[in-house]
Design a protein around this nucleic acid. Structure first.
Lengths: 212, 212
DNA sequence: CTCCCGCTTGATGTATCCAATCCTATTTGT
DNA sequence: ACAAATAGGATTGGATACATCAAGCGGGAG
């Protein structure tokens, strides 16, 4: 009989979105039966989707106890930012010699949108689009994949929280400087700035983690 | 009924090993029925295991056509080595200030075994154990996880081929120098050497790729 | 010879059952 | 009265059987 045409892949996509956008909160149990009912399928595609998400690290699985949305502690966020530094510094270094005028222009256009963006949610989205635009010319698909995979472990909520925490001015100033350095081909300086840029985020999280 | 007690997780582990150790060659089709028969289970755990491996990138999946062992081209090996540089340079830099005498001693012990290792297969294994020992003190689990995940995409066969290609002497010389630099806390030099060490591998693969 | 149809193969999904396990709450023993 | 044992319900994990669907092939018809 029919359902909503949800297949395993579509199910995984839907769950990923639910997690990323905070409709499913960290720690929430993911009951197979309930999800099957909600998506109009049997339990089997649900289980397969959950396995996929588990392998991606978005879901914690314990045998005979089922899946829960992965909880990401502040420590883990720090570690994910450390991975960001590792991957994105290198991608940036590879990208700079390849960056064409069109690439720079694209990044500049995103910064312009950024300047006009009103809310922390939009800052977070713009922020990522800008960074991504910088890495794109690196021409190393697996590196970009790794960056994206790491990025997906930050929920939209977490990103928005971080953006709100950092405000808009200082990151945006750094973005402009970063783009300038990239445009001049100053790889070492750009990488150093990017590293500091991410370390700033680490510091502000550490600070709020202590405060509450 | 019976079965060999294979559960989804065990099945994924077994398949991972079969792929890593070359019993399942790249491009080989993974038929659900056949695997179910071989492992004495039904198709359901097989499918879940395949989904897991797909998410890990060890298996290619096309809708309605099933799974095949992922094909890793020379280009992709180059890219995976690029990811190695990104992740492992950073892990090494973080590890060096944390490296205790016991860590150095452990790495040195592995190098001693390495010196005695006879065959390319054992070189490859030792090589990894040595590198891993260097990164371990970085105290950043997610970084180590990312390194391991990337590493698992090299099959044992590929690693052995690479080891045979590079021989034993030059890598081993570099390993000794690397350990020496780590022991003295010379982070910048160690990272530079590690990068060159991996770039050497890239070059020798590029060379054989051209030759045949 | 080429194109199209239909058959076969294998993947995907459903429904139903059963076993194992975990959680909870109740009962039991001291 | 309180801790330990246990019984029951809920949930996952897996087996089996069946239905459906897409892709590849093989054999004719044009």
């Amino acid at each position: 009989m029919e359902g909503s045409g949800f297949t395993t892949g579509a199910l995984a996509t839907a769950l990923r979105a639910d997690i990323a956008e905070g409709r499913l909160l960290p720690g929430a149990p993911l009951r197979q039966e309930e999800l099957a009912l909600r998506f109009g399928t049997s339990r089997i595609p649900v289980r397969e989707a959950l396995r996929t998400l588990q392998a991606e690290g978005l879901v914690d699985y314990s045998p005979n106890r089922g899946a829960t949305v992965a909880i990401v502690t502040d420590t883990e966020i720090q570690e994910m930012l450390e991975v960001r530094i590792a991957l994105e510094s290198h991608a940036l270094r590879l990208a700079i010699p390849n960056a064409a005028d069109a690439d720079i222009a694209a990044a500049r256009a995103i910064l312009a949108e950024y300047d006009a963006a009103p809310s922390p949610e939009s800052w977070a989205a713009m922020n990522w689009r800008f960074h991504w635009a910088l890495y794109l010319p690196c021409e190393c698909r697996r590196l970009l994949d790794a960056i994206e995979r790491n990025f997906k472990h930050f929920s939209t909520a977490a990103r928005t929280k971080i953006s709100a925490l950092a405000g808009k001015d200082r990151p945006q100033r750094e973005h402009h400087r970063l783009l300038d350095l990239v445009g001049r081909g100053r790889a070492d300086d750009a990488v150093a700035l990017l590293t500091e840029h991410i370390r700033d985020t680490q510091r502000s999280i550490r600070a709020t983690g202590r405060a509450g």
